[in-house]
Amino acid sequence: MSITKPGERKLQILQALAGMLENPKGEKITTAALAAKIDVSEATLYRHFASKAQMFEGLIEFIETTIFGLINQISQQHKDGIQQVHSISLMLLSFAERNPGMTRVLIGDALVNEDERLQARMNQIMDRIELAYKQALRQAGVQGQIAEAEVAIRANLLTSFVLGRWQRYAKTGFKASPTESAPAQITILL
């Protein structure tokens, strides 16, 4: 019997859940299947998480922390508003490409039969992404790169573009790369 350090098992559970979400068929994930995948009992899962919803919350927290940490870095590294928008867009698409299971959480597919507050939380994340676009586009407006009156419209368009690319990636069984032709498409959108 191997001894795991505190927090390791929790991480192992979340990694296994994310891995199971990479299944292109998108079948409903049960705690029994998740426990079997990492060779533990369901009781072990429930020692670390009170519910399956809490497991998904763990994935959502990872997504949120990662994405907004990277958006903050981009905002600090690039003072040019249009460059910020390009970098944020490519980061969001690359994140999905590197994390197919997380993409199913981002688009809400993995949350369909789960607690509705999880989808509400993902909707808040999408609102925050749109807000990040607005901030970068306001910067571009101040810099004379775009009309300031277009900030909200462009932010919504870019958010919809990213969401659409994520959706297509998941719906094609992770075959249609979200980053393919993305730099040129983002340039056209701007």
Rank of each mutant, 00 (worst) to 15 (best):
A53T: 07
K175S: 14
A96F: 03
A120T: 14
I129R: 03
D109E: 10
V85C: 04
E114L: 04
R9T: 10
I71R: 10
K25E: 14
G108W: 04
D80H: 10
T187K: 12
L190M: 15
P100Y: 01
P100H: 04
E27A: 15
D80T: 04
I186T: 04
A184E: 09
I71G: 02
V162Q: 03
L106K: 00
D109I: 04
L118S: 05
Q76L: 13
V142Q: 15
I38G: 02
I63M: 08
R138S: 12
G164L: 07
I125G: 11
I38V: 09
Q15I: 15
L70S: 06
M126G: 13
D39Y: 01
I82C: 05
I38R: 01
P24N: 01
M1K: 06
L189I: 13
T103D: 08
A33F: 13
P24S: 05
A149V: 13
N99F: 05
Q54K: 15
T4H: 10
L34C: 03
A33G: 08
W166R: 00
S94K: 07
L92G: 02
L14H: 07
I29S: 01
L92Y: 12
R121S: 10
A176C: 04
G81Q: 03
G7F: 02
L92A: 06
A18Y: 05
A96Q: 05
F62K: 07
A152M: 08
I67A: 10
R47H: 11
I107A: 01
L34Q: 08
L14E: 01
A32C: 11
A16T: 00
A110R: 07
A18K: 06
G144E: 00
T187C: 04
I186H: 02
N23S: 09
K171N: 15
Q15A: 06
A16H: 02
I74Q: 00
E42T: 10
A110D: 01
H86W: 10
I38K: 01
I82P: 04
I63G: 00
R138K: 09
L111R: 02
E116I: 12
L21F: 05
R154K: 14
H86E: 10
L111P: 03
S87Q: 11
Q139L: 07
T30P: 06
Q12N: 14
T4V: 14
E180P: 08
R117E: 12
R138Y: 09
R9D: 03
Q167P: 04
A96V: 06
Q76A: 15
E114M: 06
Q145L: 07
E42V: 08
F68L: 08
L106H: 00
E8Y: 08
I63H: 05
V151Q: 01
H48D: 12
I38C: 01
Q145H: 11
F161D: 05
M20V: 02
I60E: 00
E22H: 04
I186R: 03
L111M: 02
V112A: 15
A120S: 13
G164H: 02
Q135I: 11
K10Q: 14
P24K: 00
F49H: 00
E8H: 12
Q77G: 15
T172D: 01
Y169L: 00
F49C: 02
I67E: 08
A132V: 13
L11E: 11
K134S: 11
Q124Y: 07
A149H: 15
E148H: 11
S94C: 08
L157Q: 15
N123Q: 13
Q135D: 11
N113K: 13
K5N: 14
T30S: 09
S177D: 05
N123V: 08
A18M: 11
L93Y: 03
I74F: 02
E130K: 10
E61Q: 06
